[in-house]
Design a protein around this nucleic acid. Structure first.
Length: 346
DNA sequence: AAAAGTGGCAACCGCCGCGAA
DNA sequence: ATTCGCGGCGGTTGCCACTTT
């Protein structure tokens, strides 16, 4: 067999390259009538001079009737980024969560669009702290609030960082936040990592939960509270706690991932800034597993700002990359397909 | 207007795992 | 236990259209 040739392609007269409309028609007609069955038999049965593999690929990526086609919506793009954060380059698995999209399509979309935007974002973030424009953002309320993970992943803004336009910083009113009132500060020394101190909060289940007592609370001019740049969810104030589990640390692309469960359903998977995780693992041997704790909830607005920023560049008319607006944070984000009814729509 | 650069995308390549022989 | 065929997957290539210079 010639090198680089499939075992199913070792016959003569195997056509390669782009498919003609006539070939498409033959393949569609055959599979519509008989199904594909054994792919290696399809070319012969359909009257095509292609290898079975080529037929399969053409059908899966282009011809099958349930394909959606067209450009990706912002929601799809956000979901892809989210899933990629969980799964890495497992395109087939990612595609299972996007009806009508093939793994190849998603892979192409990632490699041609998202990846470059993310890299541009990371570059711009290295010189971030420009909060301009934050107050005028149109917040999307799809986000799952992820207070704990935000606290783990976001070092609070440095004191000399500029606040978003239109905001005033206020002192923390711990009366608003019962869960934070009796925080024992752990002995975890984050100073070596130039990180904010971390604290452990003992829940009623006597399990530790990682929190950050240096959250940035900001009172908007209408007196609503923003936390770490995002509006506080109603659950934050005297709402019943949501049960969550943090478990199943795994490593993808060299970065630890943490699974977040709520009421038995996986609602998130997070990666982290490596130095933070290093600090965490140094003191606690990795993320704690199987923790149950009530928690307050804070929309991770930085996430959605990030996505909105990203998507605004997708819709740009120029095919060339452009400078991304600087945002206060760039971290993994989640879209919540089942937005709780009580959530704020800022 | 033409050449060069760039992005999008379809298709190919090579590897892997699985099941049958 | 080994080999073989096959489906599936992720990485990569190459073409084409569009944009920029």
């Amino acid at each position: 067999m010639a090198p680089g040739q499939h075992t199913c392609c070792d016959k003569k007269k195997i056509k390669r390259g782009l498919w003609s409309p006539e070939e498409d028609e033959k393949l569609i007609r055959h599979i519509s009538a008989y199904g594909h069955g054994c792919w290696s038999a399809v070319p012969r049965l359909a009257g095509l001079q292609r290898c079975g593999k080529s037929c399969r690929l053409r059908w899966i990526n282009y011809l099958r009737p349930d394909l959606k086609r067209g450009s990706f919506s912002p929601e799809e793009a956000a979901l892809i980024i989210d899933l990629h954060n969980i799964l890495g380059n497992k395109w087939a698995q990612i595609a299972k969560h996007l009806p009508g999209r093939s793994d190849n399509e998603i892979k192409n979309f990632w490699n041609s669009s998202i990846k470059k935007k993310l890299m541009a974002r990371n570059l711009s973030n290295s010189a971030r702290s420009n909060f301009q424009g934050l107050s005028s953002m149109n917040f999307n309320s799809y986000l799952i609030p992820t207070a704990q993970m935000d606290q783990v992943y976001i070092p609070p803004a440095a004191p000399n960082n500029p606040l978003p336009l239109g905001f005033d910083q206020v002192n923390i009113n711990t009366n608003l936040i019962p869960a934070l009132t009796s925080l024992p500060i752990s002995s975890l020394d984050s100073s070596a990592y130039n990180l904010p101190p971390l604290a452990w909060m003992a829940s009623e289940y006597h399990q530790p939960q990682l929190v950050d007592h240096q959250q940035q609370f900001i009172k908007q001019k209408d007196n609503s509270i923003f936390i770490n740049g995002g509006p506080a969810a109603p659950q934050y104030f005297n709402a019943p706690p949501l049960m969550r589990t943090y478990a199943d640390t795994s490593v993808i692309n060299g970065l630890p991932k943490l699974c977040e469960m709520a009421n038995g359903n996986q609602i998130g998977m997070y990666s982290s800034v490596p130095p933070v995780l290093e600090a965490v693992s140094k003191g606690f041997s990795g993320f704690p597993s199987g923790l149950y704790a009530p928690e307050m909830q804070v929309p991770a607005v930085g996430h959605i700002l990030f996505i909105q920023s990203l998507m605004s560049t997708f819709n740009a008319s120029s095919s060339h990359s452009q400078a991304l607006p600087l945002l206060p944070c760039s971290r993994p984000f989640l879209l919540n397909p089942n937005q709780p009814s009580g959530w704020i729509n800022p």
